[in-house]
């Protein structure tokens, strides 16, 4: 028999030590890693345990969150919603390995001028720098990007998946030259399904949209025309499902306004 080495009690912890931290959220640390030599980059989402929670309860919650995120991603894949695939699951340690998306978040593409400057320098030769409407290096007009956002969210809702945390940070534009992009075109990719669940209710879909609307308003200047092109594309894709969701969206907005007047 080939002798296997003594089992490392936590290979995932060792993997984390060799990974690069790219973001630290409230629930999870996110790293860029590789799972073996010669492997491509993988995003590692590591839900650390909360010291102040009961240990057993914590393990159960972590397990549910990891399983929930994994299931939502696979459900999206099967329905043709553009999301990254899974590469590694260590449920005992709350770790999820997710296909690396080579691109930029919609938030940073829409964001402040500084980021644009940085990209202008890197991609000077391919960027039509005089055209303000194009994201440098990505060559996608802002409006086309908003159409992609609305369409992808509609595909997700048509599959009865509620994202639960729609923000412009939780969507990325995959670069057309990325090797993991066989279609060779820009692809909008939805990420961060940690709060996702399934529901057929128009109300849940409306709340998802409202969360995104608030996120646009609080993150991006002049967000109204942007969000309205998102919504137009969404309506077109939802077809006959739209009117019920549209009515709920009005209700949800009204409640939101009342709440902000009271609070």
């Amino acid at each position: 028999m080939a002798l296997l080495p003594l089992p490392d009690p936590s290979p995932t912890a060792a993997l984390v030590r060799s990974s690069v931290l790219i973001s630290q959220g409230a629930e999870a640390k996110v790293y860029r890693t590789t799972l073996h030599t010669g492997g491509g980059p993988v995003l590692l989402k590591y839900r650390f345990s909360k010291q102040y929670r009961h240990a057993t309860l914590d393990a159960t919650l972590t397990r549910a969150r990891v399983a929930g995120e994994a299931r939502a991603l696979v459900r999206c894949l099967r329905c043709g919603v553009s999301v990254p695939g899974l590469r590694f699951v260590d449920v005992a340690n709350g770790a999820l390995g997710i296909e690396w998306v080579d691109g930029k978040s919609v938030r940073s593409l829409l964001g402040s001028g500084d980021e644009g400057e940085r990209y202008r320098e890197e991609d000077e030769d391919i960027a039509p720098a005089e055209d303000e409407d194009l994201f440098v290096g990505y060559k996608v007009p802002k409006d086309a990007l908003m159409v992609m956002v609305g369409t992808e969210i509609a595909k997700m809702h048509l599959a009865d998946i509620i994202h639960g945390d729609l923000t412009t940070s939780n969507m990325m534009l995959r670069h057309p030259s990325s090797t993991m992009n066989p279609l060779g075109v820009h692809q909008l990719v939805l990420i961060d399904f940690g709060l996702a669940y399934t529901s057929t209710l128009a109300e849940d879909k409306a709340v998802d949209l409202y969360v995104l609307e608030r996120a646009f308003a609080s993150t991006h200047p002049e967000s109204e025309p942007l969000f309205s092109s998102v919504l137009d594309a969404y309506k077109r894709k939802m077809g006959k499902e739209w009117p019920a969701i549209g009515r709920k969206l009005e209700d949800v907005r009204l409640r939101g306004r009342k709440r902000s007047m009271v609070g």
Partner: peptide, 21 residues
Amino acid sequence: AHEHHLIDNIVVSFVAMKSVS
């Protein structure tokens, strides 16, 4: 090409998440 790429991504995901499926 599209079909094979997607199916590959799905079955790879199945393998990765077998412990929680």
